[in-house]
Simulated assay, not measured.
Amino acid sequence: MDKKRLSWVDVTKGFLMILVVIGHYPGQLDFPLGKYIYWFHMPAFFILSGMFFKPVLEKGLSKQVIHKRFMQLIVPYLFFLVTITVIRYGMEIGSGNLDMSWYLNDIWTLVIGGRFARGAYGVFWFVTTLFFTFLFFLWMTKYFNRTKQIAILAVFYLIAHIESVFAMQVIGGAPDKASQTIPMIWNIDVALMAVVYFALGYYMKNIWMNITKPWLIAGLIGTVSAVSLDWFGIIDYHLSMKFLRYEHVVLDLIIPISMTLVFVGAFQWIASRMSLKWLQQIEKHSISIMYLHIFTDIVLNDYFNYGIIGFTAFGLIVPIVASIIIQKLVPHGRLFLGGFSPKKRKAAAKPVKLKEAEPQY
């Protein structure tokens, strides 16, 4: 795959990252933009991740692949977790909070993570969920054929919806509170849902790589229909992967897939005709943006009065500056931003007599 062909991937991810920032705006939006963003933006990330998944069938390679993903996902997770926490605690101590029980309770919440970690850590659930989604799918593709994989995915999908029904309807109340009544470290249970989207990225790779006109039209029909039905009050659809809110077994597939088809197809078309390097730059610093955009607002909103535009601008610019600083000034900064790449082992050179050496072609 050449860089020109894949530029749309970075552009799409950059756009999705902007939606992540907008989706965490603490104020009230004038129209249901937030709802529509949540319909597809997190499933789209899992779909795009699955598109680049490579099965590991050879013996002995699984540990290397898992180690690589751990270094790329969990090491940055821990780095930003510790960094934000140290700064937060410094701010708390500075404001006079010396209650040890508060700190112990906060640390316990951060250890559990997932949907229980709120505020500055509101997006941390995605990384741990993605890591376990990868492990689930790696296991499935290693030990089961395609038919059995689909059967396992169907079971996971149903279990995820049963869990959602229990949280949203049996327990009831606000989705964030209801989901927190189900104990689970690092939102591993959300991986049961996420792995389905991840698998769709992998199984439909040929389609995603080149969204043809029929697929784009199908996506448009699905998207326009869903938005229209919601706009006129015929349906009231919501999707929140973090808080186990999966409301419809069929629409939870149709709507995210349709909207992802539209945006991926649109950016493939646009990226083939013009340069969108600013979106590629956003994707380049996406790790820092993801972890720091909420914390940026927490720090700055006492000093600045801004709306959605200012929130989005600060949520992008400040983390990008932080990303550049981390890369240039922090030892192993690239590693903390997900830039780990395993060293290639050099093949042992065989001693060869110069006179008998074979010609090189």
Rank of each mutant, 00 (worst) to 15 (best):
F243N: 14
Y237G: 09
L251Q: 04
P256L: 03
S228G: 14
I294P: 12
M290S: 10
I254N: 04
H248I: 10
I287Y: 03
L276Y: 01
L276P: 11
S228K: 13
H248Q: 12
I287C: 10
V264W: 02
A266H: 06
L253R: 02
D230Y: 07
L261F: 12
S275L: 05
I270E: 03
L276H: 09
S272E: 10
L251Y: 07
D297N: 14
F267D: 05
I257A: 00
L239C: 07
S228F: 15
E247W: 05
L244I: 13
H238Q: 13
I235V: 15
I270N: 01
D252A: 05
E247C: 10
Q281C: 03
V262L: 09
Q268R: 06
K277S: 11
W231F: 15
S288Y: 07
S286Y: 11
T260H: 01
H285T: 06
V250Q: 07
L239F: 13
Q280H: 02
Q268T: 02
K242Q: 14
S272P: 11
H285G: 06
R245K: 13
T296F: 08
S258G: 08
W269R: 06
D230W: 08
I287P: 11
S258W: 02
F232Q: 13
S258F: 03
H285K: 09
D252M: 03
I294F: 00
F232G: 07
I254F: 01
E247N: 14
D297F: 10
I298K: 10
L229Q: 12
M274I: 09
I298E: 11
L229D: 10
S228D: 04
I255S: 00
I282A: 00
I257V: 15
H238C: 05
I282Q: 04
V264L: 06
S275A: 08
T296V: 13
F232H: 15
S258L: 01
I257H: 05
I234M: 14
I282K: 02
D236K: 15
E283K: 00
F267L: 09
